[in-house]
């Protein structure tokens, strides 16, 4: 788009209209952004066997050009040498002996500083560890005491239980008195189907009283008969 516009402008300026207008020549800008042949396409057919003519430079002109070029190269080399010399001369010289001595001194200073730090750190560490040890000792002591208390409490509970069971043992039903116990149970059916009001009165009998187990008629045959 730009290219077309500029070409049109230039042609207009260079054409008869431009001369008549008396304006100065417009700059001709031709963009060849997308119109060039790609490099990989190779030589065109029409240019395949064309041998470009070598430029013919006269002998004296070649000599003159060579002289000028030699002169130029000599000058540039001398300037470069001069600048290199100046730079090297301005650089500070390193005194290796002094440098080694300084390094030695610095090392000694660093070692002293490091030792100092190590000492202070060791002191702090010892304090910290001592404190931690103390805390741990107290913690262990506390745990031992708690364990002992727990064991004592458990023993007390066990003793209490044993005492209670010993007291209850006289009422236990064993093989000796099982017949009597069954007889008593069958003769005295219990009924938990009662209600309690806020005054503590027990209300019974709303539901059907349980029948005693006596007088049951067997309603069906024994299994397996």
């Amino acid at each position: 788009m730009l290219r077309n516009t500029l070409l049109a402008g230039s042609s207009a300026a260079n054409g008869s209209f431009g001369i008549l207008s008396g304006l100065p020549n417009t700059v001709c800008v031709q963009c060849v952004r997308w119109k060039r042949k790609p490099l990989w396409l190779g030589t065109a057919k029409s240019k395949l066997f064309r041998i470009p003519e070598r430029p013919k430079i006269p002998k004296d002109e070649t000599i003159e050009l060579l002289r000028l070029h030699n002169n130029y190269r000599t000058l540039v080399r001398s300037i470069r040498h001069h600048i290199t010399e100046a730079v090297i001369g301005s650089q500070a010289r390193v005194d290796t002996e002094l440098r080694a001595k300084q390094e030695e001194e610095d090392f000694v200073r660093c070692v002293a500083l490091n030792n100092e730090w190590n000492e202070s750190k060791a002191k702090a560490r010892d304090e910290r560890l001592a404190k931690a040890r103390e805390v741990r000792r107290e913690e262990i002591l506390r745990k031992i005491i708690a364990q002992e208390q727990l064991a004592a409490k458990q023993l007390e509970n066990i003793e209490k239980t044993v005492k209670r069971v010993k007291e209850e043992a006289i009422t236990f039903i064993t093989e000796k008195n099982i017949d009597q116990a069954i007889e008593d149970a069958l003769n005295n059916p219990v009924d938990h189907n009662w209600a309690l009001d806020l005054e503590g009165t027990i209300h019974r009998g709303k539901y059907v009283q349980p029948q005693a187990n006596e007088g049951q008629r067997q309603k069906r045959m024994q299994p397996g008969v």
Partner: peptide
């Protein structure tokens, strides 16, 4: 009931109470 009780006794157990809730 006696059979049941004897089964319990055979495991080394004891009976604390027997309740009949009736028929």
């Amino acid at each position: 009931l006696k059979r049941t009780a004897n089964t319990i006794f055979s495991t080394g157990g004891i009976i604390r109470k027997i309740d009949s809730l009736g028929f």
